[in-house]
Amino acid sequence: MTLSFFTDLFQQDFLFRAMIAGVILGIIAPLLGSIVVIRRLSFIADTLGHFSLVGISVSLFLSTLGFPYFLDHSLYLGIIFSVVGGLMVELFRRSYKNYKEISMVIVISLGAALSAIFFSLSKKTGSLFNYLFGSILTITNDSVWLIFYTAILVGLLFLIFGKQIIAVSFEEAKAKLLGVNVNLFQILFMVMLSVVVSVLLESVGVLLISSMMIIPVAAAMKVGWSFKSTTIIAIVFSELSVFFGLWSSHSIGVPSGAAIVSFNVLLLLVVSTIKKLRGNKRIPKDVPTPNLFD
């Protein structure tokens, strides 16, 4: 069965596309997820996903009004709406400084309500299952390219602003003293996150987006000893889940997004159990004596 998976991977375009998309998402989801966790915004992916779903439902609705373009390119409106949702979260976060989670509840509720309305108006509620639970196996070439471009964008932003992003995430209140324009940072980060959530939506679905971003990071935090090691371990866990998720989806026919997330949770449980058995110690490491005259 495993062998047929590998053979099919290189013979069947849909499976190859799904693997490429999964591998790329397996890198960017936990990379952004680690920042989201540090900033204690774990619910944000769900929130943005729900608003992205509004964009998709509006696209479907517009396609029934005689704009067929929107039927094949629903993701674009999904991204735009997700960005709008992200900016709304930032806006509400400033109104409820000590109750930041309220902002997410407001936006998630509005997103769910508007999605239901537009899906109903478009009379295409049949496609709802795919958007709720994802369908990476049916991903199109265009979407794979979109995921690729998104990854390049995220990679570039981390390359240029990585230091500031990490520093501000650890000490948001002191961002100004680190020479960071707080407002610009918040908006940039929210836009970047909105785009990633939208491209994740097609693959793992709105209900499973946050698990793809957060669970590998949660597992990696159990064993990581530095920011770098934790992020790398999270990406490794995420890639393992993508691989085994696609393999099980292909082999036993379970939904791919659900399978990927189930493997993520399984890894978390395994890591947590091992850590508990080993007495809650982080992986030991050698601490080299640094050279003072580098």
């Binding site: 540090i38 995430s169 650890f170 000490e171 935090m221 530095s226 920011f227 934790t230 982080r282």
Partner: peptide
């Protein structure tokens, strides 16, 4: 205000 729970080394910080 510092977030203590996520792993980060002194050098990285």
């Amino acid at each position: 205000d510092f977030n203590y729970e996520f792993p980060i080394t002194v050098n990285e910080y």
